[in-house]
Simulated scan of single mutants.
Amino acid sequence: MSVLAKTWSWLAGADHWAGADGIGHRLVEHLWLTLVCLALSCAVALPVALVLGHLGKGGALAVNISNAGRAVPTFAVLVLLLLTPIGAYGQWPTIIALVLFAIPPLLTNAYVGMRGVDPDVVAAARGMGMTGRQQLLRVEVPLALPLILTGVRIAAVQLVATATLAALVGGGGLGRIITAGFNLASTPQVVAGAILVAVLALLVEGAFALVQRLAPERYRGGGT
């Protein structure tokens, strides 16, 4: 029997879907970790990008700094965090490492989207007597929303794939299926875990694409 056939057989086993170590429970853990990290990274990156994009100052430096973080492997950041006092606080090292990983696409897309707003539209809003806050929230953010949402989509897909690292430090998620397969020398289980992560990433990508396609035309757009 081939590896793929054994992998399918492993995935089809009902006992692999139930219980605390089952696929269902690990999937919920994986999604929860992804959502938490995505929410935290959005809370950190988007306000900074929107304000800097509105002001037109310091944004390029912030984007370059965040992009420089892409050169540092997430696993290396995770290991370093484990060696600090933060390592004693459960999943926080994993969460912090994943949040740092997700910030660059969020910050870059949001800033570029804000700077791409037509200056004439902003000037017209200013001429109507809008305050800076009103220009930001009522004019610039809605026009920049396509790129902002694209950044969120990119970050979400990357987090789904990278959240498997949580298993290496005792965390939950689909990565536990892969690490358990390595410990048991079970190639079908390792492949099954990898397939589950890949399928989940594709589903998240597809969900964002579907939402963007069904959204009003002004909310559609590309990314960087």
Rank of each mutant, 00 (worst) to 15 (best):
Ile178Trp: 01
Ala207Glu: 04
Val190Ala: 04
Ser2Met: 09
Phe208Ala: 03
Ile177Glu: 13
Val197Lys: 06
Val3Cys: 05
Leu31Gln: 05
Leu100Gly: 11
Ala88Ser: 10
Gly222Thr: 13
Ala39Phe: 02
Met130Cys: 08
Gly127Leu: 08
Ala39Ser: 09
Leu165Gly: 00
Gly22Tyr: 11
Cys42Asp: 02
Asp118His: 12
Leu168Cys: 10
Lys57Ser: 13
Val121Met: 04
Leu107Asn: 06
Gln135Asn: 13
Gly223Cys: 11
Pro47Phe: 02
Leu33Cys: 10
Cys37Lys: 12
Ala123Phe: 05
Leu50Ile: 08
Glu217His: 14
Pro119Val: 13
Ala68Lys: 06
Ile65Tyr: 04
Ser2Thr: 09
Val169Asp: 14
Val139Phe: 05
Gly53Arg: 02
Trp8Met: 11
Gly206Phe: 01
Val122Arg: 10
Pro85Glu: 11
Val48Cys: 07
Ala76Gly: 13
Thr94Ile: 02
Val72Ala: 00
Arg70Ile: 07
Leu78Phe: 08
Val211His: 09
Pro47Thr: 01
Leu81Glu: 00
Leu38Asn: 03
Pro142Trp: 05
Ala12Arg: 00
Leu147His: 07
Glu205Arg: 15
Pro216Leu: 14
Ser9His: 08
Met128Ala: 11
Leu31Ile: 12
Gly56Glu: 08
Glu140Ser: 14
Leu50Met: 01
Val197Thr: 09
Met114Cys: 12
Leu168His: 10
Leu165Asp: 05
Leu33Glu: 07
Met130Pro: 12
Arg153Ile: 01
Leu31Tyr: 03
Arg133Leu: 15
Thr34Phe: 10
Ala192His: 01
Leu80Arg: 03
Val112Ile: 15
Leu31Cys: 14
Trp17Gly: 03
Glu217Lys: 15
Val112Glu: 03
Leu168Val: 10
Ile154Val: 11
Leu202Phe: 00
Leu80Lys: 01
Gly173Ile: 05
Val63Trp: 07
Leu159Cys: 08
Leu106Pro: 08
Val77Lys: 06
Thr224Asp: 05
Gly132Val: 15
His30Val: 07
Val190Trp: 04
Ala166Arg: 06
Leu137Ala: 15
Gly223Pro: 02
Leu46Pro: 04
Arg213Thr: 11
Ser66Met: 00
Ser41Ile: 12
Val191Asp: 07
Glu29Pro: 02
Ile154Gly: 02
Val28Pro: 02
Leu202Glu: 07
Thr74Trp: 02
Tyr89Asp: 11
Leu174Ala: 06
Val121Asn: 00
Thr34Gln: 14
Val190Leu: 09
Thr150Ser: 12
Ser66Glu: 03
Ala49Lys: 01
Ser66Leu: 00
Thr162Gly: 04
Leu11Phe: 03
Gln91Ala: 08
Leu11Ser: 04
His54Asp: 06
Pro146Ile: 03
Met130Ser: 07
Val169Cys: 12
Ile154Asp: 01
Thr164Arg: 04
Leu174Arg: 06
Pro188Ala: 10
Ile148Asn: 05
Leu145Val: 11
Tyr219Cys: 07
Leu145Phe: 09
Leu98Ala: 13
His25Cys: 09
Arg176Asp: 11
Ala192Ser: 10
